[in-house]
Simulated scan of single mutants.
Amino acid sequence: MNLAEKVKALPLTPGVYLMKDRLDHIIYVGKAKSLKKRVQTYFQQSKAHSPKVKRLISNIRDFEVRLTDTEFEAFMLECRLIKQLKPLYNKKMKNPLAYTYLVIRCSREGRRRIDITNDPAGQEGDLFFGPYTSRSTVEKAVQGLQESYRILCSSPYAKHSPCLNHSLGLCLGMCTGSEDALSAYNSVLDKIITALNGNHPAVLEDLEQRMIEAAEKHNFEAAAKYRDLMKTLGSLIHKEKVIGFAEEGRNIVILEPVNGREAKLILVKGNRIVRDTKVEAPDTDRNGPAAPHTLHRRIRSAILDTFRLEEPLSPRPKISRHDIDEAQILYSFLQGSARSYLIVPEHWLIPGHEDELGEAVERLIAGYVCAQNGAGDL
């Protein structure tokens, strides 16, 4: 069967495709909501193809597919296969240096400074944020914050000697030994740390106010600079929320449609799928039963049987660069519209809390029905 015939025979269902070269090496892994529609795009003439895609297409001699029941499973499978196979054209996930950390380092003198690194190992007292998948984003955020808050000191450990950046208006004067300058500097770092921890984003509020003031003075170049910095810093804060979500190691129950008759019950621990099974889909007829007894019982049993067998709640290490992609997929999926999911606290798994778990399963099934009817989440 030639490639055109293989593409024509593909189903309109979710899955992962693996592109191969003339030596039968897998050179690219991708996911699709509809395998047939997605794979077809590689074999159609298109001016929209990027140079990278054109090079990939020129080397494709064959492909294989792996079917999944849901798009979410296709995302997770693609991520796992890329890490396992390290295809040539999936360079972004292949290169471990693609992951960057922002770190607040503390010197022997007790002076803190912002740094960027690919190595999450550090000295006692260092405070790490990340991993981030875009080094350029981290660099833009750090450079922008240093310039905007005038903490870009070129001689941070000098005393009573103004640095070059101080004369350029980019340094508060920590290098001069000024206690006021050092206090202001530490206040800025505290604001940055607070924002990256997902708490009160005072830094973003400051930048927004500066943007407004610049625009009122018709200094649109400065206003645009503050706007771009807000967007860049916002992406780092979002990533920290993703990481924090994954580090909590939550028990997550997802109910996804497969077709009109079946749904997929997916149980996730942290950012790892620990169980998936097909179940009878709830009746989406508004006049029908919202939570059939057999479905309710099956979901409840799956939750108890699976999560009770998992390791008990314990302190978790910082999420590694190898976990960040799955964490991002899961977090983004749960933030999407028309999703039916449930987060199960550990105490619901203890005997005596059957009513709380039962009511939550009822809400999960009712949320699925509403989502399929286009009513959104409950």
Rank of each mutant, 00 (worst) to 15 (best):
P14T: 07
V16Y: 02
K20E: 11
H25Q: 15
H25M: 10
I27Q: 01
A32C: 07
V39S: 05
Q40M: 13
Y42K: 02
Q45S: 14
K47H: 10
A48V: 10
S58M: 07
R66E: 15
R66N: 09
L67I: 10
F72K: 04
F72H: 08
E73Q: 14
M76F: 13
L77M: 13
Q84K: 15
K86Y: 02
K86F: 04
V103Y: 06
V103T: 09
S107H: 11
R108H: 12
G110K: 03
R112E: 12
D115R: 05
I116N: 05
N118R: 14
G122F: 07
L127W: 11
S134H: 10
S136G: 08
Q143H: 13
Q143E: 15
K159P: 02
H160P: 00
L170N: 08
N186P: 03
S187A: 12
T194V: 10
A195Y: 03
A195E: 09
H200N: 13
D206R: 03
E213V: 09
A214R: 05
A215M: 09
K225A: 14
L229V: 02
M230R: 14
T232C: 10
S235T: 13
E247S: 09
E248D: 12
G249H: 03
R261P: 00
E262G: 00
V268N: 00
V268A: 00
G270S: 04
D276W: 09
K278Y: 07
D283L: 04
D283M: 04
G288Y: 01
A290C: 09
P292F: 06
R298K: 14
A302N: 08
L304Y: 03
L304S: 02
L304T: 08
P312G: 07
L313K: 13
S314W: 01
P315L: 02
R321M: 10
D323S: 11
Q335R: 15
Y341M: 02
H353C: 07
H353V: 02
E356N: 10
E356G: 08
R363C: 09
L364W: 04
Y368W: 06
A371N: 15
Q372T: 00
Q372W: 04
G374H: 03
A375L: 15
